[in-house]
Design a protein around this nucleic acid. Structure first.
Lengths: 335, 335
DNA sequence: CTGAAAGCGCTAACAT
DNA sequence: ATGTTAGCGCTTTCAG
């Protein structure tokens, strides 16, 4: 019933030639008489032959011509946009993409990276989770090519592609200042993560620059999802000396803040969000954001990795991508 | 410089035991004296040994314990949501997920499926593109386990998980009728695709049921992106006997339609969209949608596939998931 | 142009 | 509890 998959040997026998000749046809080597080649090809199709990927790889000692990607969460549009761009680049190089979401769990990341390494991916793009990246360094030691995306991995000497987080945050706060806001709140995700550190610094730096209020309670940190941002926003606005403007540190937090404002019918609070999101221009007023292109980030990370795979041995670089402020209305409200 | 990766044999020599004993330790077989085992483990870590995945697979003749996923476009939140759910299920079963976007190109799909099959994925979840699915049937013949998601593949006897597209469309149109609309336009994607066929049928069926206008020009088909939907919407509203309500056939088209309405300052046109989308409730008025859960669809497809991989040989089934109408305002506007 | 033999790194039989 | 041998399916010398 379960007929064994045909092997090269089966094909050879059927075509009445040697194993090696069959292998030559399979690999498109020139030195085969057209007539013989045809016989072999016929035998292949008749048998429905598919080369055994593992045997070939074992023999070649090569890698999988696939690249691994470890992100935080594939369902977050930021990461899926990045993943899609990487996938497209990979396909252009006849490589497949294996994706894993770490859900920001260092242990999950570790497991994923180990699995990918074991499967001999040609290289790995990773958005490092957690603080300790020793396992990445160890994999690198063993020969795995690694490129960090969105944030660098502290203590690991690898290429990295990041956005100008600090500059973007400064841009946002400066924009709000120009619209006469003095009390600008910040909604921030886990402050231990590089991206958020940078954004927080940009926020604080710009506050000082523009003489805006620097009350500690205006900066709400450790908000890991939209619901947390929604709660924080409500509390900020219900508290004493509330902000007149909010700078939200990422796409999820922006949406959470907007939900809160909607719920308590506040249309007078200015909002600028980090990360653009779908339908941001359909909200009323349009949501002003600091935009950076996740696809661009993915493309550049992929290109770095592919260059490494192609043998580039130059020193690792950290590339910083520019961000832009897109004014749509919500950030131009005045106090 | 480039020291060869250590093999099991190297480990064996270093530990002063035989190859087989080392293999036993590697595979956690019981019959090894703890003391020996420790020596072997030490040797492994000292050498930084990693088992050769290909050699093992070749020997075992097993598959990759990874599953393949071919969708239309990973950057579309609908598909990335689905992909994320599948990924989570896969991880629970210690499997990795290899993702490819067909970009709705049959040829790209074909190539992706072939690559995945060649890599011996344990199974494949595919959103079939195009009309001819012979290659899927052929792969199935060769032993590849296939589950179709979002749409079935005509002519292929495989499990499929789909949403109740027709019912959802009826729901939308009925909802609009109840709010006294008689001229309800439809924005549809490629009508040759199963999903869109079903939605179009639901639309037409419901129009008849409620005695609404069935002018041919109210149904705009073949809109493949938001920009096309935007143009179509403008034309519809600028034309003679324009619609008072619009039913948009998917998330992208809904956004396109909303852009058009925003651009021409029409706040009186009712809109219901198929597929929910992020921030749909932040638009003013909130966007009424027919919602179905892409994550649920992914989960169920993954479960079907995992069951097949675990040996389930029962007849293929087509599972239809329910959809729900979420009223948020845009669909409750009256003419 | 074609073929025979060796071996990639591992595991399954079959010893011991 | 441990070792020896064979072989997974392919590519690569090296000979014809």
């Amino acid at each position: 019933m379960t007929a064994r998959r045909p092997t090269l040997k089966d094909v050879a026998e059927r075509a009445g030639v040697s194993l090696k000749t069959t292998s030559r046809v399979l690999n498109g080597e020139k030195s085969v008489r057209p007539e013989t080649e045809q016989r072999v090809r016929d035998a292949m199709t008749e048998l429905g032959f598919r080369p055994n990927y593992f045997a070939r790889r074992l023999r070649l000692g090569a890698d999988t011509s696939s690249i691994g990607l470890v992100i935080e969460d594939l369902s977050n549009p930021f990461y899926s946009g990045m993943a899609h761009a990487i996938e497209q680049r990979a396909h252009e190089h006849s490589m497949l993409l294996i994706i894993g979401s770490s859900q920001r769990q260092p242990e999950t990341e570790r497991r994923l990276v180990a699995s990918l390494s074991q499967r001999r991916v040609s290289g790995l793009i990773v958005v490092p989770a957690g603080h300790n990246h020793d396992h990445l360094a160890a994999e690198q030691e063993r020969g795995l090519r690694i490129v960090c995306a969105d944030r660098p991995a502290a203590g690991v000497s690898a290429d990295a592609v990041v956005a100008d987080n600090e500059g973007g945050a400064r841009l946002a706060v400066t924009h709000l200042s120009r619209h006469h806001h003095k009390r600008i709140a910040y909604l921030g995700d886990d402050p231990d993560l590089y991206t958020n550190q940078q954004r927080l610094e940009g926020y604080r730096g710009a506050l000082g620059l523009h003489g805006a209020a620097t009350d500690g309670h205006l900066a709400c940190l450790g908000l890991t999802d939209a619901a947390a941002a929604e709660r924080a926003t409500r509390e900020l606005l219900a508290g004493e000396s509330p902000p007149t403007a909010i700078f939200a540190g990422n796409n999820l937090l922006t949406i959470g803040a907007l939900h809160a404002l909607r719920a308590i019918h506040r249309t007078d609070v200015a909002v600028v969000g980090f990360d653009d999101f779908e339908a941001a221009d359909l909200v009323v007023p349009g949501v002003t954001v600091v935009r950076h292109d996740p696809a661009e980030l993915g493309r550049i990370a992929a290109d770095r990795l592919l260059a490494r795979i192609d043998g580039d041995r130059s020193a690792p670089t950290v590339e910083m991508l520019p961000v832009h402020l897109i004014a749509r209305g919500s950030g131009e409200l005045t106090p």
